[in-house]
Design a protein around this nucleic acid. Structure first.
Lengths: 200, 200, 200, 200
DNA sequence: TATGAATGAGTATTCATTCAT
DNA sequence: AATGAATGAATACTCATTCAT
């Protein structure tokens, strides 16, 4: 049974409401990025968003719901990126697939590195909404399909490993403060292609 | 200036004190493993360790110090494993190095998977003691040296990437509930060797 | 000085306004009956009444005013019932008076038992409007007069006691879930008549 | 299933703890007596008790638990009084029973009238502990037995009515500010004896 | 040294009320 | 007149830390 206290309370139609809601989410993101998750308190989020606590609770049933929303958006963006990449890749070979998908993965991690990191840490601690879980499934399926179509053996497990490798490199790079996209991308491609070659 | 409040208060010589200290640390570990970090409260740790809160504060200046000690021990164990592996590897080729070091890395993650995961999450949130930081450096150096000695190009960056790949696979595997050491080890070796082959 | 914040803001002449006002009062009544006084919030009342909070505040200066109005209406109904009974009783003997007035009292309590109970509880917590207080006085006077006219000794105190006995039986019966009007009425009459006989 | 959050957290053995616990309960009683139930907040209780909120929560899991404890004590005292009365009454006639039990009931209500009133109001709003419920049962049984032994017809229902009559008189008297025990007792006895006589 | 009672700042959350639209 | 978004004071409750015994 999905936790109702993780879904937003209302999806505001009026522009004033939308602005409030967006301000809350963005404030939460900034706090996670710059102050850490222990400073993510409802009062602090509201203050940084320039809103009253009361307003925060109009839109979110609790602190975790804001976190859940942030994660949902992150996953949603990522799925959109992956889907765009998959479409673009139709008819191209496996090397192109690796180039494009690893690029998408890295881009995602490097856009707001501290935020991506923080959200990944928090993701383990709350039970996600059904929607967010389905987004994760869809993301994996995109990779699996891209591999299967190109005749890669054991596509599920391979997809799992490729995403794990990407995540590992991205995680370590962010932690170490590396931000050179091209360099990281080259190294990540090398690892993934090496893995695929060894598997064959 | 390293945070003094992260070091244990006294290094107890008497066995009773040592036992108390160990009980506290182990209680904290068990809570992280089975109840999650939000349940890691000083009162709860003390109760599970069978001591009073007062005693806990005799040995540790605060909650984070317990966490820091847990992390220090984890890193210490890991360094010991790596050092043993490095010694054992003297005179053997790069393939053996990869086999043995990835095995050590995986073993570390799978011994108490939930704990390893939790500690990695917490590591980001507290500033570590100088000692712990030096342990992390030493671990990296062991790998760097093992690579350099065998003529691997750009040993620092390669070591960094290899550890990142290991960490990524281990992390994803634990998250997904995979516990088959041999299978994981084979896949990880494949990725690492593929990476090294591609680099050459 | 009576609390101005307990009187309705305007006595609406237009039928639409009257309907809105009635809807608010009835919504509050239903909440008290079925959800308890802690769920009696202005937002909830407004929602159940099908109006906005803003409108609610057009008609009532605050939450307590709604409660006060509910109490006033209850007392008003009761006075009307008692006055009708008193008129009907002209020329009849004391036994008839007891029969009819106890019946009126019980009917009042049993019409909406949960509501009557809740309002009696709330009555203690807010200071009533002058009008409501005068309604309570009038009710008592009706009983006092009915007794005095028929030569009952110490009519004030006797009226007080008779109403207390009625209230006690009604309260206990509702609490215990008894709803058999005739049975309760018989027992209550017995108590009251016994009291009067003993007084003589 | 009884609500665990209504039972005290620990029954303190040390005298310091006992004093703290007693201070909390007494402070809550005084607030109910003099300020009303809406002022019964945990912070306020703690402040009046001269204790920190933290201490309050050491002994009680929440606000309602304090209320529940207050009610339990009231019922406990009442049962003790009734039991003493019942013992004292052995071998005496029904008139003595009425005299003594009504006296006990009135004494209970008049000892701290505002408190008794407030607790009775609150009793409806929380689900009592099993112990408190059994106290109420026992109280009723004492009266039932006293009546049955003396050959009163339908002892259960009669006991119910007699207690309802007592409660009604006591309630109304307190509300009206009457404190003359003897006068009230005489009137209450008259009502009860009248009821019993009419029943025969 | 060990204990655990006491502390109180800090956090989540609600709800009566206002006011711009 | 009506709406409902916004407000923020008030409230329940937790938990790291201290200190008298």
């Amino acid at each position: 049974m999905p936790n109702q206290r993780l879904n937003p309370r209302k999806t505001p139609r009026q522009s004033r409401s939308q602005a409030t809601c967006a301000a809350i989410v963005e404030a939460a993101a900034r706090i996670l990025e710059t102050e850490g998750s222990q400073k993510l308190t409802t009062n602090h989020v509201a203050a940084l968003a320039g809103v009253s606590v009361g307003s925060l609770y109009q839109y979110f049933p609790g602190k975790d719901a804001i976190l859940a929303e942030l994660i949902r958006r992150m996953r949603q963006d990522m799925v959109a990126d992956f889907e765009a990449a998959a479409t673009e890749l139709e008819g191209r070979d496996i090397a192109a697939v690796v180039d494009v998908l690893t690029a998408a993965s890295l881009r995602h991690h490097l856009r707001r590195p501290a935020l991506a990191q923080a959200l990944e840490r928090e993701e383990a601690g709350i039970d996600l909404s059904a929607e967010t879980r389905s987004l994760k499934t869809r993301m994996r399926d995109i990779v699996v399909d891209a591999l299967r179509v190109r005749g890669v053996d054991r596509p599920e497990r391979t997809a799992f490993d490729l995403m794990a490798l990407s995540g590992g490199i991205a995680h370590a790079a962010i932690q170490a403060g590396e931000r050179d996209f091209d360099d990281l991308h080259a190294r990540l491609c090398r690892a993934v292609k090496g893995y695929l070659a060894a598997a064959a």
